[in-house]
Amino acid sequence: MVRQLNKTDIIYPDCDGQPMSDNTLQFSWIVKIKENLEILFADDPNVFIAGDLLWYPVEGDNTTRRAPDTMVAFGRAKGDRGSYKQWLEDNIAPQVVFEILSPGNRLAEMTAKFEFYDRYGVEEYYIYDPDRVDFTGWWRQDGRLQGISEISGWISPRLGVRFELGDELEIYTPAGELFLSPVKIAKKAEAAQVRATVAESQVQIERDRADAAEQKATIMAAKLRELGIELD
């Protein structure tokens, strides 16, 4: 007699055996989008962001799954996860998904991904091909993902970021800050720290000058009093 597995007996692997990216360009874009979104929502404890994390939408089914290059789930707490099991996440599906294309992507694969995201409740789905600088997006209307006709200048309803197409995809925060690579973010922070240090040093120099001038005036006044000269 074969015992039927209970839902609690089913194993949901944390890895699908597929690489996160096929090349350095694809990887750099995955990291850029994921890390800049982390920064954008750093102060909101209930926005979960992940890259290449397996998402299981159906309890008891460990074969129906996808690992979006970047996904954002509003209403879910930050923290580490081996995978995103939707039934353990108040049944909240990731609302925003990004996929970065590589030359190895096939039409059948991308069609399957679209059907998955459409079926399981993604509200916004974006695909970027960095080799061709081609950016495509969909957002949910009337229960289905519908194509965004004018993607350049589009503002994500969920994220609040703006997309622009030039020599490459540009993504801007609601405050107008451009998404940068982690290296450029670090250099920008370093430059800001240097400017702050220089400004602080300049303030200290001016303060020292003022103190020296005040001390000099005090000494001069004392010498004049010694000579019998009283200052008004």
Rank of each mutant, 00 (worst) to 15 (best):
M1T: 11
V2Q: 15
L5E: 15
I10M: 09
Q18Y: 09
M20R: 13
M20K: 12
Q26W: 04
Q26F: 01
I30R: 06
K32M: 11
L37H: 03
F41S: 07
L53N: 12
Y56W: 09
P57C: 02
V58G: 10
D61Q: 03
T63M: 04
T64L: 05
R66G: 04
A67W: 06
G79E: 11
D80P: 08
D80E: 14
D80W: 05
D80A: 15
K85G: 01
Q86Y: 04
E89L: 04
N91I: 07
A93M: 03
A93R: 05
P94Q: 08
V96L: 07
E99R: 00
E99F: 00
E99N: 03
L107W: 02
L107Q: 05
L107M: 08
E109K: 02
T111L: 01
F114W: 00
Y117M: 01
E124I: 01
Y128K: 09
P130F: 00
F135I: 04
G137S: 05
R140A: 01
G143W: 00
Q146K: 12
I148H: 03
I148C: 00
E150S: 05
E150Q: 07
I151C: 00
I155V: 13
R158S: 11
F163S: 02
E168R: 12
A175L: 10
E177Y: 15
A191N: 12
A196S: 05
A199V: 11
Q202L: 14
V203E: 08
V203A: 02
E214G: 14
Q215F: 12
A217W: 04
T218Y: 08
I219N: 13
M220I: 13
R225K: 14
L227I: 14
I229V: 07
E230R: 15
